[in-house]
Design a protein around this nucleic acid. Structure first.
Lengths: 340, 340
DNA sequence: ACTGGCACTCGCTACAGTCGAGTGCCAGGA
DNA sequence: TCCTGGCACTCGACTGTAGCGAGTGCCAGT
């Protein structure tokens, strides 16, 4: 059962009108606002077919049509082309991101920018440690039995962790530890690190071995296994636009989902290079987000990907515009990181 | 115009019932549920007085009474005593906070704990840099012209910032810089730092002066002036309890306010030692929060205060319970910090 | 294959009527 | 003087009815 060009045009018109007005769209209004060149009755027939195929539906018998998730999917895949950014948006992006002093700063500015431009909830993942390599490890004595371990990654991320030593540790041992871990680990990717870290202990001189064991277990635990990922969020207030019509009346599940770091990572963390990922309504694996859509992509310096970013909004969203904005922001951020 | 004991008892009963049921409370229901020892008619007379004095009001003519902000204020000040925590709550607090490995970890656990116990939005300020003193400053060369400055504060906070040097800087200069800044700044409070930092430049040897000037300006700018404060937030999903009845139908202003770091700091940042601060509805300086109440206090090791924490919820909240929980959590966190 | 016409559906709004919770007031009693 | 029972009144919430109108599906005609 093929859909001819006109039926596709009708679907496109329905999506565009519904996104713009937030109201079910009827056949009469449709022919008035779009140059379809046919009468309402014809459009009605097309609509009947589109409905049968599951692309649109009627909220109730005597109402207009509304796109289904499947309809949006078809729209995104075949009926829309990415809008070019307006010069104003371009300027906004540049103005917003220049002058960032810091990775933290870059991430915060980015997430706010995204929220502002798309008027939706924005999510930005910090550069993933798994995709970073070690630039430097620093050990700072805090007390006789405590060290602060500071790791600086090539992506600009800095992580620190308190290390509780089994026994008091003299200053020269700290120097030795520092030298050894840096020699062995600088330049390696953290995802490749576990065996190396393991090896550190075996290779350490007997006197240093207990200290090194503690240190390596902290390294493994904190930097590799446990919440290695960080996330920034902005624009939750945008969820309240469209006065509760979106999200079938309750923000609750959405807000709950947004509080879970794991969920957010799932949202934006799994990206292949230079792909835009659009998940519409039911396509979301997370139950709480079945009423929402997510547009996400990866970012990083040059062609490599170090993290993900994206936005979350109602299924009724301006996909072409949102996709364009997310892509553009991801590119700018990538360029910014490349400069460091 | 004094309010006799019975009128106060009536007010207390109204607040308690309204908080519990979320519905305007009438005179009949009141005498049934509380042992007031008088008839509904008498209660009605008392209510009339309370209303005249502005402690309660009628949403509409034939409805029961609802406390006003002023009524809650009187209730909090004179009619309630702080509920002792249930053993279950005590246990929850302990279980939640032991095993925190990190300042970050402590703050995150605390904010989630608070949100969970009070079932409201929780806000925790990281130990303020202005109230911390410097424990150690580390300079890590990133490239010939870039240093990573890492500051470790006695409160456990770690801040880092990239320093762009005016000229390539040799390794021994880095060592000198590190030694000098540590000698001069370790142990000082950051709020007292500006003149000291200024002095660093003047005292530096001529060769180091340009580098020191850059370093000191970064120190001043980042660590003292600019967003020195950090905030953690949790439980926004709790805003949706009480199905839009609280917050007069729109979460928008609340969510917007919660996105502004400045606003949050105002909420919980200005605390005097060991005081519970309760701001009810209109008492809030922030317009967006006129429909909400905030319960906050300071925390820190021993008697000193290093930061604030608190919760935000509907004016219709369980004040005694919330106050007790916030206070208890603040104490536990303080003790935890004291152990470091 | 498209179109105009027509009967039909059904949500929305307005309106009227009823119910009941709650009030204010008053006269009578401790 | 203060409290109480009684009573009339108010007004929101709910129910049922009716009319409107947007929108549809179907059909006969071009």
């Amino acid at each position: 059962m093929g859909l001819d060009d006109r039926k596709l045009a009708v679907l496109r018109a329905i999506v565009e009108d519904y996104v713009a007005t937030q109201e079910p769209v009827g056949s009469r209004a449709l022919v008035e606002r779009h140059q379809l060149g046919v009468s309402p009755a014809t459009v009605r027939n097309d609509m009947a077919v589109l409905e049968e195929e599951g692309y649109i539906r009627q909220p109730h018998t005597s109402a207009g049509r509304v796109p289904t998730d499947r309809g949006y999917r078809l729209f995104v895949d075949r009926l829309s082309r990415v809008k070019p950014l307006s010069p104003a948006e371009r300027r906004a992006i540049e103005r917003f991101l220049v002058g960032a002093v810091d990775l933290d700063d870059v991430v915060h500015r980015t997430v706010r920018l995204l929220a502002q431009l798309t008027r939706q909830v924005a999510v930005v993942q910090y550069p993933s440690l798994a995709r970073s390599s070690v630039r430097h490890l620093e050990l700072v004595p805090i007390s006789t039995t405590r060290l602060m371990l500071v790791m600086i990654a090539d992506t600009g991320r800095v992580e620190q962790r308190l290390v509780e030593m089994p026994a008091p540790i003299p200053a020269e041992d700290v120097t030795d530890l520092r030298r050894v871990v840096n020699e062995k680990l600088v330049g390696t990717r953290l995802s490749d690190t576990p065996p190396l870290v393991q090896a550190l202990v075996d290779e350490a001189s007997p006197g240093l071995r207990p200290a090194m064991a503690t240190l390596s277990s902290v390294l493994l635990e904190t930097l590799v296994e446990r919440h290695e990922e960080r996330i920034a969020l902005a624009g939750t207030a945008n969820l309240t636009r469209g006065g509760l019509l979106d999200f079938q009346g309750s923000l609750r599940p959405i807000l709950e989902a947004l509080e879970e770091e794991v969920v957010l990572l799932k949202l934006i963390g799994e990206v292949e290079p230079s792909t835009m990922r659009v998940r519409i309504g039911d396509e979301n694996e997370i139950d709480n987000l079945r009423a929402a859509s997510v547009v996400s992509t990866g970012y990083g310096p040059g062609a490599t990907i170090v993290g993900g970013l994206g936005v979350l909004g109602p299924t009724r969203m301006d996909y072409p515009g949102t996709i364009a904005t997310v892509r553009a922001v991801a590119r700018y951020v990538g360029d910014l990181l490349a400069q460091n």
